[in-house]
Structures are given as C-alpha cells and as structure tokens.
Design a protein around this nucleic acid. Structure first.
Lengths: 342, 342
DNA sequence: CTGAAAGCGCTTACAG
DNA sequence: CTGAAAGCGCTTACAG
C-alpha cells in the first residue's frame, strides 16, 4: 500500500503551488481555466482525493449528516420497523443528492447521543427518527437546542418539543381511515393502540378517529380503546382482551399494521371473519400489509417525500436559513380487510 | 451558539498542559490517575468532545466504516430489498459494538465508488453489499485491491473476485430446500431464477438444486429452469412461460422469496393450488414470506451473524491481521407452501 | 490569477 | 508522569 498523494505532490507535478491545487480542485473561479483543468487531470490520473479530515478540520464542517434511529434493539434484526427502513432509504438517497454523507446509528433513547455527533464535528447536523415516547426526550432536545446543534425531528409539531419537526398528519390519518370505515357501513368501533401522552403518534391517530366518529354521531359515551405497542403480539393480546369483554364492534381501527396483523390473527382464532364479521384497518402500509389474508387497508405516509424534507430542511438549518415545521398529509390505501364482499 | 471548547480550554481549566488533556481523555496510563480523573470530569462538565476531524487527521484513521449498498434505485423506496435492510441493521449494531461509525451509501454498480471513501480518509474500510452481477465488478475490486483499500464483500468466495468475502452457502441452501421437497414427495421440478455467470448467487442455488436432484436420481435429461430477476413480476412472468410450455412439475424451486410470491400469484390465476397441486419454495425468508397465502417455505441466511462477521473481519483487515473467506450455512424454514395437507 | 504563510485541533515522539 | 513542539493535509485571508 503506497502512501497517499497529497496536494503538494499534485502541485509539484503540475508545476504550481499547493494553494493553486486546492483552488483548482474546488473549482475556484480564481484560478486560470487551463491551469485548473491541468491540475484536475493530474489529480484524476494520480487517483488523488482531498483528505476529508484535513479539509473538514480547516473548513470547520463535515458535509456529513447523522441519522439517529431510536428503537428498542430487537433480538432479531429482521424485525426492524419497516417504516424506518423505508425512511432510511429515502434519507440516504436525499443525502446523496446534496453531496452529503450519512452516518447511521441506532440509539437507545436514554443514551447520551444528544452530545455526541455534532460536538465532535463528525456531522453538521442530526436527523432524529423514532417515536418520541419517552419522558426525557424533551430534555434531550432542549439540551441539543441549547448547544446550538442543528437537528430535525421526525414527528408532528408538538409545543412540548423544541426544534423543527417534519411529520405526517396522524390526526388526519385517523380521520380518513375512520371515515372510510363509516362509508363501509361500520357503526360501532374499537381502537387498538396505546393512546397516551407517551405515544403522541398513536394518540393523534386516536384523536382523529374519535373526532370523525363524533362528526358522524357515532361516538359512544365511552370510546372503546385498548392499549397496544406496535407489535403483532400486542395487537393479538389487546384484541383478546377486547373480545373477552364481550364487545363485538363492526370495525377495529388499529394504530399500526403490525397491531392489525396480530388483531386479525386473534379474530381468526375466535372464528370471527375479516372483513365478513368485522372490518380491520392498519396504519403504515408496510410491505407485509399487501400479503396478509385478507390484505390490509391502511394509511400510508409518504416516506420518499419525508426523507427529502428531513434532509433539505436540515441543510437549510445548517446554512442558517429559517425553517418551519411541516406536516404531510396521510393517504388512504384501501384493500380487502375493510370491504365487505357484497 | 457559543464556540466549541478545545483541549486548550480544558487544559487551562485543569491547570495542566494540552498534551496532558489529550492523554487523559484517551485514558493513557501515562497520566496520573488523579489528574486523569480531574481532566475527564472537567471535560464532561464543559461538554467537551474531541474534534474528530483533528483527531483523525493526526491519527490518519477515521474509526469509520463505509457500507456501500448496490441496488438499482427503485422508484419506491419501500421496496428496498428486505434482506439488505436486515443486514444493514446488524452491521450498524456490530459497528457500534466496536466503537466505529458507519457511513451508509447507496451506489450504482457502475459509479466510481471504488475510489471515493478510503482515499479521502472518510472511512478506514468498505463493506460491499449487493449482488455482484455486473461485468465490471471484478475490475473495480481489483482496483480497490491495488489501491490498498480495505474491504470485505458480501457473497460467496469466488476465484474471479479479489479480496475477502463473507457469504452464505447458496449451494448448500439449494441442496437443503430441494432435499426437503423430495422428502415431501416431489418427483419433478422447475427452478425459477436467472442461473448464469452474472448471477452467481442464483447460480449456486441452482447448482445445489440440480446436484441434489442427481443424488436422488431425479434429474431429467434437461433441468427445467426459467430466468427471473428477484422481483414479483419476474417470478410471475417466468411462471407464466413455464406453464405455457405445458410443463406441470410437482415443485417450483424459486431463487428468491419475491420470485416465489410472483410464482404463487401466477399459479393462482391458472387455478393451480399451492401446496395442493404444486409445491413452491422461496429463498431469503423476508418478512412477507410468513404472511403469504400459503405461507412460504424458504431458506434463511443468518443476517445477524453475517453483519457481525463482515464488520469484525473488516476491522481485522484494517489492523493488518490476516483474514479468511467465510461461508455460513443456510437454514431451512418450513412453512405451508411445501407441505401437502394430507 | 498566483504563491507564501497561517492555522484548523488534535496526537505523539522527544526531552526531562 | 508532564510539557513544549512538530506536524497531520488541507483552505483561505493576505500580498502581490
């Protein structure tokens, strides 16, 4: 392995100063066109690449973004939330568009990630992806803010949280899926998914759900709702409890596709057919939802656009431009699980 | 946003020299225990982080690995090969274990990625993930090798390719799934998946398939095989062709789960029941395979172990230790699509 | 348009 | 065990 060439080597070969090499390679208009092209050609021939560490140190920025994914590490990596994976794909591509590198890291919500990346100049800013359902999330965000770290958060605008957020309208998503179910003739409903302070996404979906019910005068005295985190097992268990209570709603509104998958599985064990006896909806449009029996009606978040917005807004923030929160509309995906085969 | 503190600031506050601060923060045994602890405490209080660019520049390494994913960018990011996503998860976690950062980048096979990362000192080494099915892959690898770049490749050992590879035994995978089908009573077979020089993974699966058939004296004069890339559509089309030829094998061995999903869909349109009339197997054990109707028997690659091996071997390579190719065994996952309900 | 020089913030021989 | 000093490879004011 031969030593890497430096800009001095290139300067020597091109018969110019090292400063000129640096300028030529950054396409500075200050340098004569012919000189610039000659230097660039020699650099290419020599396989010379600017040393990023030196360049970053001098420029005091890294042209790198860090993506922090918060997720309980599952024993089986294949179970990584498909929605996040989809976001990762789109964020990666968006970064490439802007000539930024992307550092990816899985984090525990309770780690000390809030200080790590930008302070050490590894990255110019952070994208935070993961459900903000822990109590100290706000403190960490405040600390980031105080340190002057550039960051954007995936999620809905929340006055509790400092900083910029890009999200998908969970409230509206809860509304449209509920409206769809009402159109399909459902009169009584249950919502499966933890609706509480610590699960703002699910909470907003639930809120949209009950508000739409109220609009149609279908909201009972007490909305039926059972807690469940976003897993198949939790969906199964919550549905089990619902059925044990004797309730037999026309429609089950699940806060995520995984919950819906578990719910359908549970209904099957009780001989309750979907959509024949009960309609079931999910949320997220994960790949699996197109393959379940029945296929799952769900709500889609536009991950491609989300990734692009997260990256472009973070870059604006880094450049010192002002940025506003953004809430994307949710889209309905209608499949078999909510349509009675009349 | 206040200026970041430097090691000189910490030195000043601790009443020691900047060298001592640097040593203390890297836990050097050269520095007095009390001094070390005092310096570390002050650094923590000041929220001081070592500047990675400066540190890397001086140390001439980056403590960063780059993961290059080769994939035809799909218009829909949610369609990113789930197998790769699973690998990404496990690689990310493995990097964290070793205190390395991970740079993730989607690449076109025909880009000039082979020079980019290590030469610019952005990373100390590369992990190459993606099917090596393009003609110029070998040349690029050779170039990497010549440049002295550290890299490991996901895939089977191949004398055509320079460098270290970590892979899963596709040949054995093809064998065990075929043996399973034979045990289920299948006598005649078709293989769906491109088996050629440019698709070494599928080729090895196919080879394992026909060798196992030969072992059981079930290999016809001409093995039936239809080309298909790893998509649902290709699986559908190839199966269509197979059926059009009039062939009605007992079992369809598909080179990937996505192909199998397409194949089953096609069989359905022809009124051919799976597993009733024909057994169908996949490969990869993507999440969807547990939800199709029928659920799909398939072959699993241990992505968790794979990610760990890729990272640990790359780090060995970076340290100058010698590393050997490694081939992991494939595992059978038996579900409904290959078991006749007798 | 070009060059000589300073300096980004570290790590690590070197000297004590 | 500690400090003064060199130097990693760049970018960019400064001077011409």
């Amino acid at each position: 392995m031969k030593d890497k060439a430096t800009s001095f080597d290139i300067a020597h070969m091109a018969g110019v100063s090292q400063s000129t090499v640096s300028r030529a390679l950054s396409n500075s208009p200050l340098v004569n066109k012919e000189t610039r092209e000659r230097v660039q050609r020699i650099a290419r021939e020599m396989n010379y690449k600017v040393d990023k560490n030196a360049s970053n140190l001098r420029k005091q920025r890294s042209s790198t973004i860090a993506l922090l994914l918060f997720e309980d590490p599952s024993p089986d990596d294949s179970l990584i939330n498909p929605f996040f994976m989809s976001m990762l794909g789109s964020i990666t591509r968006a970064c490439a568009t802007f000539n930024y590198d992307l550092l990816v890291s899985f984090q525990n919500m309770n780690g000390d990630w809030h200080a790590e990346y930008e302070d050490s100049h590894k990255s110019d800013g952070l994208i935070l992806l993961g459900y903000g359902d822990y109590l100290d999330y706000r403190d960490k965000l405040t600390q980031l803010q105080d340190q002057g770290t550039h960051f954007v958060r995936w999620g809905a605008h929340d006055t509790e949280y400092p900083g910029i957020s890009i999200g998908c309208d969970n409230y509206q998503g809860g509304q449209i899926i509920t409206e769809h179910l009402i159109q399909q003739g459902a009169k009584s409903f249950a919502f499966i998914g933890t609706a509480g302070q610590r699960a703002p996404e699910f909470m907003a979906r639930f809120q949209g759900h009950i508000d739409m019910l109220a609009t149609h005068n279908l909201l009972p005295q007490e909305a039926i709702q059972y807690n469940a985190v976003s897993t198949e097992e939790a969906g199964f268990d919550a549905t089990q409890k619902l059925l044990a209570s004797g309730a037999r709603p026309n429609a089950l509104v699940c806060a995520s596709d995984l919950i819906a998958v578990g719910a359908i599985k549970c209904l099957k064990t009780h001989g309750i057919g979907v959509p024949r006896d009960m309609l079931v909806s999910g949320y997220d449009n994960i790949p699996i939802s197109g393959f379940t029996t029945p296929t799952l009606s769900t709500v889609q978040q536009n991950t491609k656009k989300a990734g692009e917005l997260l990256v472009s807004n973070l870059l604006k923030l880094i450049k010192g431009e002002s940025v506003a929160d953004y809430l994307m509309p949710a889209e309905l995906v209608i499949r078999e699980s909510t349509q009675r085969a009349d």
